[in-house]
Design a protein around this nucleic acid. Structure first.
Length: 423
RNA sequence: GUGGGUGUAGCUCAGUUGGCAGAGCACUGGGUUGUGAUCCCAGGUGUCGCGGGUUCAAGUCCCGUCACUCACCCCA
């Protein structure tokens, strides 16, 4: 990274900044697909009381136990910068009784989340997510819809090099027995102390260890998908059938685990292979117990979170979805002060007409101003000098083919409007 | 939290056994005081990440530190 002069400020560690249109293009494309499926916008607090996450996300998760930005506010209340979105959405649904109307409640959100982690490629302390939640209906078709919305977002960006991995984490009726069986299996393995500790906290977590020596030992591990209740198994089969109907490609990955405790039944992750270690560009699943856990009615929900930062990285890797739109459509090139004064008014009129326009400020030479026009991405340059002022004209130059025509100064904005919109 | 790698111009980087701080790109101006994207010419602003040490001499060697980065872990 570049050196900063002593005394210079820099952004806090692990916090990315976005300059230019790429970030919003990715974020808004993902959001648009949720809008199409009828998800309403919800704007949530960026911090909540700490207990919400401790209870909702789960004390045993790494996110809660060692990655939260928690602090006491001036009133002595412990608050936490939101590490994920689902707990906040569920809290809001309960608090405002949104689940008393028609179900499911379908909401989508976008914004920054915070986790105190060691930064890495695709891993930030302030991460941007787009997410949806559909609460109140336990229907496998809804799981499939959520997955289809995420998939449509990635495809709308032109992404192709990702896959959807899916599995079921079962429900409360058989998970405890499975968990006990897995624990007995893991106890027989040759594992280091840190991994044993993880197994004690949550044995499922060990299943997706990436180290080859651990993976080898896990090939015969009991899997949740083989221990599903009849209901969970039927749900899982139905989700996959709906995905096939929707044309959403997916692969079963029975070793996949989510790091957040609230997931049940359907869980999934979108994986991109071009990103190095942090390959998950989105993930989520169904949560049967979260509403009740947070004091609401015992309703099931399903949702996803997509990492906008990682999706942006994936777009760069695939060179997809990031056609940089021109900053403006028309660029004014004045020669001299009188021309500049007149162009300021014309550019203003163009903007009022809904045309994106800019002009060369300062005292640049003609050549420099033309260069600026070129860099702006504008299709047209409006060149105005003394000669034109005397003739009552302005030069409209098509920067794509170099052709130039004189148009009357009076009503120039309307003429430019016609040229921009194709005659 | 653990383990590697790297810090030189706005960006990407070169810099020999320790001996004058460099290139390309970008930027600004000019060639053409009325025309961009091509071409030619000119122009540089760097605490060589920071602090200490060794040396006649440190971008270069040593120690520390900070930052960035990759992997583990975790997850989006």
């Amino acid at each position: 990274m570049t050196a900063v002069p002593s005394g210079g400020f820099r952004a806090p560690k692990g916090i990315p900044e976005y300059v230019g249109p790429e970030f919003t293009t990715v974020r808004d494309t993902l959001v648009r697909e949720a809008d199409r499926a009828g998800y309403a916008h919800i704007e949530l607090p960026v911090f909540e009381e700490t207990a919400l996450y401790a209870r909702g996300v789960g004390e045993s998760t790494d996110v809660v136990s060692k990655e939260m930005y928690s602090f006491d506010d001036r009133g002595g209340r412990s608050v936490t910068l939101r590490p994920e979105g689902t707990a906040g959405v569920v809290r809001s649904v309960i608090e405002h009784g949104l689940d008393r109307g028609g179900l499911p409640v379908k909401l989508r959100y976008a914004g920054p989340f915070f986790r105190y982690e060691r930064p890495q490629a695709g891993r930030f302390r302030q991460l941007q997510q787009v997410g949806v939640e559909a609460i109140g209906v336990d229907d496998p078709a809804l799981d499939a819809e959520v997955l289809a919305v995420a998939d449509a977002g990635f495809r709308a960006l032109g992404l192709r090099g990702y896959r959807l991995e899916i599995t079921s984490l079962g429900d409360a009726s058989t998970r405890p027995q499975y968990r006990a069986e897995l624990t007995r299996f893991l106890e027989k393995l040759d594992l280091d102390e840190a991994t044993r500790e993880r197994a004690r906290i949550n044995p499922l977590r060990v299943l997706d260890d990436k180290r080859p020596e651990v993976r080898e030992q896990l090939t015969d591990a009991p899997l949740m998908v083989d221990h599903l209740s009849d209901e969970a198994a039927a749900h899982h089969a139905a989700v996959k059938r709906h995905l096939d109907d929707l044309g959403v490609a997916h692969v079963e990955n029975p070793w996949m685990v989510r790091g957040l405790d609230y997931y049940t039944k359907t869980t999934f992750e979108f994986v991109h292979d071009g990103l190095g270690s942090q390959s998950g560009i989105g993930g989520g699943g169904r949560y049967d117990g979260l509403m009740a856990e947070l004091g609401g009615r015992p309703l099931s929900g399903v949702g996803f979170g997509i990492g906008v930062d990682r999706t942006l990285l994936a777009c760069r890797v695939e060179e997809a979805g990031l056609d940089t739109a021109a900053r403006v459509e028309v660029f004014g090139v004045p020669l001299g002060e009188a021309a500049r004064d007149r162009l300021v008014g014309i550019v203003g009129a163009l903007r009022r007409a809904g045309i994106r326009a800019d002009l060369a400020y300062g005292s640049r030479g003609l050549k420099g101003a033309m260069k600026a026009a070129d860099r702006s991405g504008a299709r047209f340059a409006l060149v105005l000098g003394e000669r034109d002022l005397e003739a009552g004209e302005i030069q409209l130059k098509d920067l794509a083919d170099g052709s130039q025509t004189a148009i009357a100064l009076d009503g120039a904005a309307a003429a430019v409007d016609r040229a921009v919109h194709g005659d």
